[in-house]
Amino acid sequence: MTTADTPHRAEGWTAAVRRRLDLGRLLPLGGPADGSWIAERAAAAFLRDAVAGAGAVLGTLRIAPAGPHGATEPVVPGPPSALPPGPLRIEADFAATARRPLPATADALRAGLLEAAERLGLAVDEVDLRVTGLLDEEPGRPAPEPAEAHPAEPEGAAAAAAAGVPGVAFHTRALGSPVHSGPGHVRVELATARGQRALDVARAVREAVAAAVEGRPAVAVLVTAVVAPDRG
Rank of each mutant, 00 (worst) to 15 (best):
35 G>F: 03
33 A>C: 03
78 G>W: 08
124 V>D: 11
72 T>G: 02
5 D>Q: 10
123 A>Q: 11
77 P>Y: 04
223 V>G: 10
94 F>N: 07
178 P>D: 05
213 V>M: 02
77 P>C: 10
134 L>G: 05
198 A>G: 04
189 E>V: 07
129 L>T: 01
157 A>T: 15
66 A>K: 06
116 A>D: 01
211 A>E: 11
168 V>P: 04
150 H>L: 12
94 F>C: 13
142 P>D: 11
205 V>Y: 01
56 A>Q: 02
111 A>Y: 00
179 V>R: 14
179 V>S: 10
154 P>K: 02
19 R>Q: 13
126 E>S: 12
112 G>K: 04
34 D>N: 06
131 V>A: 14
195 G>Y: 02
127 V>S: 10
136 D>L: 10
137 E>A: 15
139 P>R: 13
158 A>Y: 03
96 A>I: 04
77 P>K: 03
208 A>M: 08
220 A>K: 09
137 E>G: 08
135 L>S: 09
43 A>H: 03
176 G>M: 06
215 G>Q: 05
78 G>E: 10
147 A>S: 14
223 V>I: 15
224 T>P: 08
166 P>H: 06
40 E>V: 09
70 G>S: 14
94 F>K: 08
84 P>H: 10
30 G>P: 00
182 G>F: 05
96 A>P: 02
90 I>Y: 10
147 A>M: 08
107 D>E: 13
36 S>Q: 01
173 R>K: 12
1 M>A: 14
19 R>A: 15
7 P>T: 14
160 A>P: 00
10 A>N: 01
141 R>D: 13
107 D>I: 00
23 L>Q: 04
63 I>T: 06
87 P>D: 08
180 H>W: 05
55 G>Q: 04
227 V>F: 07
68 P>E: 15
191 A>E: 03
211 A>W: 00
216 R>E: 07
149 A>H: 07
215 G>P: 09
13 W>H: 08
108 A>R: 02
194 R>C: 08
198 A>M: 00
59 G>E: 07
39 A>Q: 13
189 E>Y: 00
198 A>V: 01
187 R>D: 08
103 P>C: 12
185 H>Y: 12
61 L>F: 09
118 E>N: 11
70 G>H: 11
5 D>M: 00
22 D>M: 11
31 G>Q: 14
210 A>R: 14
65 P>V: 02
118 E>G: 14
31 G>K: 05
140 G>Q: 02
5 D>C: 01
122 L>H: 11
184 G>S: 11
73 E>G: 05
90 I>W: 08
155 E>A: 15
230 D>N: 10
134 L>F: 15
66 A>Y: 00
141 R>H: 09
225 A>C: 14
38 I>N: 05
88 L>S: 02
205 V>L: 04
114 L>V: 11
144 P>H: 09
144 P>T: 12
105 T>C: 00
53 G>E: 10
26 L>E: 02
173 R>L: 03
81 S>C: 07
27 L>P: 12
86 G>P: 03
142 P>Q: 06
160 A>N: 05
118 E>T: 14
140 G>D: 14
71 A>W: 06
222 L>Q: 01
61 L>H: 11
49 D>S: 15
128 D>S: 13
169 A>E: 03
135 L>P: 00
66 A>D: 06
97 T>W: 08
